[in-house]
Amino acid sequence: MYCDESGFTGNDLLDQGSTYFAYASVAINHEEATEYVNNIIQKYKLQGGELKGRNLLKSTKGKKVIAEILSTFKDRIKVGVYHKKFNLACKFYEYIFEPPLSEKSSLFYQIKFHRFISNILYLDFVCRSEEAEKIFSDFQNLMRKKPNYLFSSSETPDMSPLDDIKTFCIHHRDTINQELNSLQGTDIGKWILELSTSALFSILCDWGKEFNQLKVFCDVSKPLKENKELFDVWIGIKDKIYFDFFQGVEEPITFNLSQEVQFVESDKFPGIQIADVAAAACAYAFKEGVNQNTESWIEHIPGMVIGKSVIPDESYTDPNTLDATRNLILLRYLAEKSINKQPLLDGIEEFLSAVTHDLNLNPSNRIATIAENSRSDAPYFNF
């Protein structure tokens, strides 16, 4: 497996010039990759002696090269695609909501509460809510160890979903800070927001479904090298373990490496160049969509993108669904418990069971509940 990325901005997920991060891999041996890259460089008379995805995207000829590469290797490429701002919203849940809820975190993941919170934050951000922009900016600064307070406790909530989130953060600041402080001085803490490590791990798990053992080469990456021990533990692991992540669909959480992950220079390993082209093409296609610049090769991309990619999905805030309504009620419940300094998790199963029962019996309550708890300018609660 040869792996490379496109759109890397490290811990800065609010970079204005780069919306998507893509991490790509290709299953190929060194000899085949060398022969293929040399032939395509000669065929198209490319300059520089090396394939670079960002350069190929700049010209009509380059896009033809991309189309040929994706068509040739479409069944041997896997790519993880990550919307950066949305990933910041997902990490917000992981590091802000997860610590106070950790004793029963699996319950909240089962009802997709994490997806609800992440999509609310993201959608509020894209509609240019000043409150959401402040949340994102403050959170990123906090995680990057810049002196900052996430919120001011003097702010008065106005009972919108976003203010319920703010209320939750204010009242559980000590628990959240304790979790973040535990990561200080570690490599995980240093690269806490960057996406390369989780992307590579997800891709290798996906390849593990097809191959019993993997030999992995990555383009030189500082965060991956510093997190190398996270991959070393999978050397010689032959057992395949699956986990039910979503509605009965089991996905692997293991893979077997034949050796340590190798970090190599792309000019000496053409397989890296093929992965670079795939990553650049996917990041560009997700940003631009189908147009005259992508129509010759975008058709190949859906089959390459792994299921563990992380991109926004508004269906998790759809007011017509039981899940969205229940999660909105749950958010308000957690905010009120926080204000009253009551234990968050006492009786949580009974509460959710009662809410689910009521919403199933009275579907009309869904829209009424959403309408009572939404701001008029929130795009995810307008109908």
Rank of each mutant, 00 (worst) to 15 (best):
L322C: 07
Y380W: 15
F286G: 10
S71W: 09
N340C: 10
H30W: 01
P147T: 10
G7I: 11
K287T: 09
L88F: 00
R128F: 14
P270H: 01
E260C: 09
D232A: 04
K84C: 13
N327A: 00
I41Q: 04
I40G: 11
E372G: 12
F97G: 08
N181Y: 02
N340P: 07
L46K: 05
F97N: 02
R326S: 12
Q213K: 07
A378M: 13
N39E: 12
R76Q: 07
D187Y: 11
K134H: 10
P147W: 08
E98M: 07
N141T: 10
L224Y: 12
I235R: 09
V310G: 04
F21Y: 13
L200Y: 06
H172A: 08
E265V: 10
N38I: 09
L56R: 10
Y109M: 07
L361Q: 14
Q42C: 10
R54E: 11
R326M: 15
L56W: 03
K308C: 00
H30R: 13
E229W: 11
K268E: 13
I339H: 07
G7S: 11
G53H: 03
E5D: 15
I111Y: 08
L193C: 04
F92E: 05
F116E: 00
D323P: 08
P379A: 11
V355Q: 14
L150S: 06
K145G: 09
L345Q: 03
R128C: 15
E130K: 14
L162D: 03
Q342F: 13
H114V: 09
F243Y: 14
F286E: 06
N360W: 00
C205R: 02
I69H: 01
K52I: 13
L204M: 05
L331R: 06
P157D: 03
Q213P: 02
T9V: 11
S59N: 09
Q213V: 04
G271S: 01
A281R: 00
K104E: 15
F231H: 06
Y20Q: 09
E68M: 10
T167R: 05
V26M: 04
V81H: 07
S25Q: 02
L359K: 01
I241H: 01
P270N: 03
W207G: 07
G271A: 10
L204V: 08
R115S: 15
S198F: 05
F245S: 10
E372A: 15
P223L: 11
L328P: 05
K84Q: 15
I176P: 00
I77S: 06
N373C: 03
F211Y: 05
T254V: 07
E5W: 08
G307Q: 12
F168S: 02
T369Y: 01
M304E: 08
I329G: 04
D12C: 01
K134S: 14
G189K: 00
A132K: 03
A354P: 00
P252R: 07
F246D: 15
S309G: 12
Y20M: 00
